[in-house]
């Protein structure tokens, strides 16, 4: 890749840049700043599309009363039950149980607070069914 060909397709890094290796006019390797490359942007936004559709599917199930609000926070933080169990210091089956609306409602306040801390939110928020969801919420 020539230095003059280093792509500048801004998307992923915001105002930040990454550096990549390119060849200058004398054939020497230099570090060149790049604001991104279209194929990498496409692949990345595809990964976010998957996350978004997962969160939307979970939200629909929460509204249908099949899942507890915890499932929403888990999905938007790109976690599965196993990963969340790691953060919560619980067994996987315990987290799976808390994903059901009934058991989640009867959780002790201290356990709800623990989940809230993991997701950087409050116990009130985490027990409420979220009404709107934007992918930008996830990416912030």
């Amino acid at each position: 890749m020539l230095k003059t060909e280093v792509p500048q397709d801004k998307e992923l890094f915001g105002d930040q840049r990454e550096v990549c290796y390119a060849v200058d006019e004398n054939g020497r390797y230099v570090l060149a700043e790049s604001s991104g490359w279209e194929p990498a942007n496409v692949a990345n936004s595809q990964a976010w599309d998957v996350i978004r559709s997962e969160v939307e599917a979970v939200l629909a199930k929460i509204r249908a009363g099949e899942l507890s609000p915890l499932a929403y926070y888990m999905a938007r933080n790109q976690m599965d039950a196993k990963l969340l169990a790691g953060y919560a210091g619980l067994f996987c089956w315990q987290v799976r149980r808390h994903l059901k609306p009934g058991p989640f409602r009867s959780l002790k306040p201290s356990q709800v607070a623990r989940y809230a801390t993991i997701f950087k939110t409050t116990p009130e928020e985490i027990t409420r069914i979220p009404d709107v969801f934007e992918i930008s919420d996830v990416q912030s």
Binding site: M1, L12, F13, E18, V19, C20, Y21, A22, Y29, W37, P39, A40, V42, A43, N44, Q46, A47
Partner: peptide
């Protein structure tokens, strides 16, 4: 396929899956 491209090009590879580094 998208996942493969991400592994090859997303931040930290210096381009082309470390081939340029």
């Amino acid at each position: 396929l998208g996942n493969l491209i991400r592994m090859q090009e997303e931040i930290g590879t210096g381009g082309a899956g470390f081939r340029f580094i």
